[in-house]
Design a protein around this nucleic acid. Structure first.
Lengths: 229, 229
DNA sequence: GAGTGGTCTAGACCACGTT
DNA sequence: ACGTGGTCTAGACCACTCT
């Protein structure tokens, strides 16, 4: 009889998926539901809040709660460090630094990260291997104005990804997935053919409005990013 | 003085990002924090629960709460219906059915969806256009054993995506992103060159263990999927 | 066994947005 | 103006898991 918020959530979810509560339809208010399930309003509230968060229902003060017309589905991807991703597949991880140099930020990067004109950046090119085979090509730019200590890091044995995670604990980010054709350079590093399609991730990272880093990661052909939802 | 759960959450987040609370470090327990912020334990609990949900901290009964070593970052992508995605860019949406036929499920599909041997499926090929330009090529397979009503739907004017959403309100899904090379067929439908790299989404959908549908969506060259987190 | 987070309650007040 | 969800409280009991 005494329902937990999980019970309430599951039951309401069932009513929606079975069609008993039609899309667009109004759902009883929290007080009524609390009576129905024999629990406190706060319990109903938590269940409903999570359902709203998951995109199944839409809540508005005074207007009440409605079943979403087209349930807004969303998937969550964890953004792993390359090393963890590789080791999770039971492959031996190896990291290699290809090049490292300091230069003024090129215009396209300044535009992308909204950097001032005189910005100096650290440009790194690295490779990540799984069991000796090329896994990911990493093209990384780090803003030295905000992170001058990056200049002293060698990045010989540890990738910039891991270094940044332990140095800049948290930040805002924009991530974008796309597909790109392997040019001669990429094909060589990834041991693939020119013209292969490469899954590509680009990420820009900020800390309190200050641009930290931009990275383009090109994965070996056939790479997939998968999740359930 | 009286802190809301948002205040608490923001403050704790700041303590983590500033490094005041180091990765791996133990966080005060809920009672102490409640006293610190002058609020009820439930308020602290909600703040901490959300932070845990977002992957910044790790909580275990009796062991207490710790700042995550490598903050487990995760991004959320909404999975829109193609029509909405196109219209959100202020383009005029157009849908076209290329082909539609019923056949026994091919072996690769049976393996992927775990279908029994005699399964009949509806195979649809459709195009989605934005302002008249090809936007997405859709290769869709629907399990007729579970959804026999799909046989009577014409799919002339409405895409299978939208039809499914309104027919099967909710389901489990596995989604996977990758890159593919445009073959002659794809190049023709998407008005692009053979060899172009196409961002590709594959999705398998189940309803209570029963396979509903599999779809492969190939986007026009240059397509990006972007989110902030 | 004991300390921690996980959850529920009954009540209260507030914020928002529809009417 | 008023009904709805949003949030907070003070207290309670429970479930897990570390020692």
């Amino acid at each position: 009889m005494k329902a937990t918020f999980r019970d309430v959530k599951a039951d309401i979810m069932a009513k929606i998926t079975s069609g008993e509560w039609a899309p667009g339809g109004l759902v009883p208010n929290e007080m009524e539901l609390a009576e129905t399930y024999g629990c406190a309003r706060a319990t109903v509230n938590r269940a409903m809040r999570e359902l709203a968060d998951e995109g199944l229902i839409e809540r508005r003060r005074k207007a009440g709660t409605r079943v979403r017309m087209a349930p807004l589905r969303q998937a969550r991807f964890s953004i792993p460090i390359v090393r963890d991703e590789i080791e999770a597949q039971n492959l031996t991880y190896r990291y290699g630094l290809v090049s490292r140099n300091i230069c003024p930020a090129p215009n396209w990067l300044r535009a992308r990260l909204n950097l001032p004109e005189s910005s100096q950046v650290l440009h790194l090119i690295c490779m990540h291997y799984g069991d000796g085979a090329p896994y990911q090509f990493e093209d990384r730019w780090i803003n030295l104005t905000v992170l001058p200590q990056a200049e002293t890091a060698a990045f010989q044995d540890i990738g910039p990804n891991e270094w940044l995670v332990s140095t800049v604990p948290f930040s805002d980010a924009e991530i974008s997935f796309s597909a790109a054709v392997a040019d001669e350079n990429l094909a060589e590093y990834l041991s693939c053919k020119r013209g292969d399609a490469l899954f590509t991730v680009e990420r820009s990272t900020w800390q309190e409005g200050e641009a930290i880093t931009f990275v383009r990661q090109s994965f070996r052909p056939g790479h997939r990013m998968t999740t359930r939802y």
